[in-house]
Design a protein around this nucleic acid. Structure first.
Lengths: 237, 237
DNA sequence: CAGTGGTCTAGACCACTAC
DNA sequence: TAGTGGTCTAGACCACTGT
């Protein structure tokens, strides 16, 4: 844990606990530097994190203030929490997976383009039904290049692909591009998600990247409309 | 324009133009500091921007590399481009607005909570149908505190509220929290969006904030499912 | 070992705001 | 004028990597 992270955590705690008045600026950076026994740059960096989290804002010439609406709500680190896969998102919930399809094939033109591979590179093709607490939740169709990921088997598919990537393969997930849309249910949705012909579907199309910028996943997640909300936090810099 | 911004821009240009080999690290930070006649910290800060944009990635002990998929695609500053309102998102398209409802009322408990105001503060209540190129696109229901925004009239509603906020009122938009879900169409949707009873709706619920952290808008945007895709870019730090 | 990026310092000057 | 945050410097040491 770096010093600026420690200070950042301590300041977050103080802000949430109400240590500082909400109508006045928090102590200035030089004072905090003296208190924490560090340089002003380190304080600045620690506070930068809280500004990015939406907990503080700065006014040049005035000081640094607490964002009133930022205190309530316990969404600590919301900004970074996003691309962790279903298993990461829903801890403390019981997730089971049913493998509907699992094969290796040559990618279509579209899939090859999204994964930045040529059509001779085989890809895993996986369709899974994910149940949360025993209830059908989402159907995920996933394409992954075999030469980037590798080692996928039924055991992995029954637990978490993301865990396999980060822990077994030692790769770091870098980010994702997503498209979110509403759609009518297809036959697969109606069969496995147990939804009526007029129940909408929330589809998330995603290309996920390693921190090297190499795409490792192209997927479509089709959610029951009554059980899933996609949440984003956007903070201007 | 600060020095680190200038350097960041110059480096972005070089990367896109192919000045540096894509298979080797770009020059190390000390060399760049010498070339640009600045300290290493300033170089680091300039490169931080490009890392956040997904154009570069770092490997401790190795160097700094170009993200291959980051070169193609001209999505400069994608990350910041998001919350600009419909008018900002769809430039070059002809947008017209039909005002379905426009009044001032005392907020419900839910609306007051989202806007962090008490129930005695009046809010604008606006329902607009937005047409793109003459076709119905989205119904927006918006609540805004009169004491934060002010000066809303029919003329503003027919053009762009966001423009009014930033240009006329001189306020800066800071960020937004959004929830995206699929839903069945209600009567208003069917009437104005011209959709069938089994056409899904993509709803975006949003609380938008000024850079001071004060919420200024709580809104629900209900889109035709065949005309709108919500896109996000997520880059891990 | 040398070379890379990650963190941190102690201080400087500037831009903006209030008094 | 005094006080704030914004930027920048010229170094330092550490953590990690490959040879």
């Amino acid at each position: 844990m770096t010093k600026y992270e420690q200070i950042s955590n301590e300041m977050r705690k103080r802000i949430k606990e109400g240590t500082y008045s909400i109508d006045h600026p928090i102590p200035d950076e030089l004072s905090l530097a003296k208190e924490f026994g560090c340089s002003r740059m380190t304080i600045k960096r620690a506070l930068d994190i809280l500004v990015m989290e939406g907990l503080l804002y700065r006014k040049r010439g005035h000081g640094t203030f607490i964002v009133k609406s930022g205190i309530q709500g316990n969404q600590v680190n919301v900004v970074d929490k996003e691309n962790l896969g279903l298993t990461g998102l829903l801890k403390h919930k019981k997730i089971t997976s049913k493998i509907i399809q699992f094969d290796v094939l040559f990618p279509s033109e579209e899939v090859a383009a999204q994964l930045s591979i040529d059509s001779n590179t085989p890809v895993y093709h996986i369709i899974r039904l994910r149940n949360v607490e025993g209830e059908p939740f989402v159907i995920e169709e996933t394409f992954m290049p075999t030469n980037v990921i590798g080692g996928i088997n039924e055991e992995v598919l029954h637990s978490s692909i993301y865990q396999h990537i980060s822990q077994t393969l030692g790769l770091t997930i870098g980010g994702a591009h997503r498209k979110i849309r509403a759609d009518k249910p297809n036959e697969l949705d109606q069969e496995y998600l147990d939804c009526a012909p007029d129940d909408p579907i929330l589809e998330v199309e995603q290309v996920a990247y390693l921190n090297t910028g190499i795409p490792f996943e192209y997927s479509f997640s089709r959610h029951r409309y009554d059980k899933f909300v996609f949440t984003t936090v956007n903070i201007r810099r």
